[in-house]
């Protein structure tokens, strides 16, 4: 087995707050190969953004801290490290774009200058070279009149345009991995599609890997090769997009799918929310974090946290139902509880 491009293992992140210590990420493992797309899915507060931000060294410390785990880029540790063999990790090896492009760009610096900055810092470009390259990058992300636009400020751009500019900035140093943290959440639906197309095209052109963080299963289906479903600071299901969508093996994934609007006329009226709310991460439950909301929950679920059990080839689920000794194992999961069996 070759070394993956990025391998994250057993990552734990905590935050100290007024109310106590929040265990935001509680042991996350995943890996991604070059040129592939991994989607990390989950509802707000499940720890998906914290995971990648901790990896990139972007969480403020204190109050945050990484208590355990590691992240390796081509086998080399990047946690707490700023450069690998003279090449900067952040901005050069790994590019990143964020959810809200409006607030993620410096309001008092021109777009062109902001795109040019990594080139000047990491590549030693001159001011003029970097500016010219910034215009080319803007052109590449399909912003019309790029040279005029480069001189403008963020408040003169629309949300979609800003996200394009963010992408231009993130790919300016030709990173091997691009992390997109909810890149389309703040945008109109039509713009969302354009941004996703752009990302896909850029990925094809440059061969970079993409980690896509989202809560939108539609985006996942459209973009991802692999999917990691996160709940309460842990990955609860991991597998190829087909496995996770068509052979969902964790009740939470099933619940997520049911809560998603669909075009299927038969399912139009079946938009079902997941009852209850995620557990308090100040003091996570002893057993499975989803047990309290899970229609299938069993005695063991309340007593012990589930491990990741293999469901199929490269398909894992953190659910007691998938335990080798579980009587429910071969049966496919349905929305309902025990009554349906």
């Amino acid at each position: 087995m070759t070394t993956p491009l990025l391998q994250v293992s057993d990552l734990h992140v905590e935050f100290d707050t007024y109310g106590g210590t929040v265990k935001a990420v509680r042991g996350v493992d995943f890996s991604i190969e070059a040129g592939r797309t991994l989607a990390i899915v989950g509802e707000s507060g499940c720890g998906k953004s914290v995971t990648v931000q901790a990896m990139m060294g972007l969480i403020p410390m204190p109050p945050g801290r990484i208590t355990r785990g590691e992240a390796r880029l081509r086998g080399e540790n990047i946690l707490g490290v700023s450069s690998l063999g003279g090449r900067e990790v952040r901005g050069a090896e790994i590019g990143m774009i964020f959810q809200d492009p409006m607030s993620s760009l410096n309001p008092t610096m021109s777009i062109g200058d902001q795109i040019a900055e990594p080139l000047i810092v990491h590549r030693g470009y001159s001011q003029a070279q970097a500016r010219a390259r910034a215009v080319a990058l803007l052109d590449m992300v399909r912003i019309p009149e790029a040279s005029r636009r480069a001189r403008q400020y963020p408040f003169e751009f629309s949300g979609g345009m800003l996200q394009r500019a963010m992408i231009a900035m993130a790919i300016s140093c030709k990173p091997t991995l691009l992390i997109a943290d909810e890149p389309t959440t703040a945008l109109d639906v039509t713009i969302q599609a354009q941004i996703l197309d752009l990302l896909r095209d850029l990925q094809n052109e440059t061969g970079m890997a993409l980690i896509l963080i989202t809560h939108d299963l539609g985006v996942v289906a459209r973009m991802a090769d692999e999917v990691a479903v996160m709940y309460a600071g842990r990955i609860v299901e991991y597998g190829s997009v087909e496995d996770v969508f068509y052979r969902s093996s964790h009740p939470y994934t099933v619940g997520l799918k049911a809560a998603m609007p669909s075009n299927d006329p038969e399912r139009q009226h079946e938009l079902r929310p997941i009852e209850g709310s995620p557990p308090d991460l100040f003091s996570p439950p002893v057993g499975c974090a989803y047990a309290a909301r899970c229609p299938h929950s069993m005695q063991i679920c309340r007593q012990q946290p589930a491990g990741l059990f293999g469901v199929g080839e490269a398909h894992l689920a953190r659910c007691w139902l998938q335990h080798p000794a579980s009587p429910h194992r071969p049966a496919g999961l349905t929305l309902g509880g025990h009554g349906h069996e």
Binding site: Q53, M56, G57, L58, P60, S82, E88, V89, R90, G91, A92, G95, M96, F98, D100, S103, S104, L105, N106, P107, E117, P118, V121, H122, M166, M169, A170
Partner: peptide, 18 residues
């Protein structure tokens, strides 16, 4: 310091002084 665009600047790998 806690704003989104400073996070972006960090993600760009800029030196702290800059």
């Amino acid at each position: 310091i806690h704003s989104d665009y400073i996070r972006t600047a960090k993600a760009k790998g800029l030196p702290a002084a800059r």
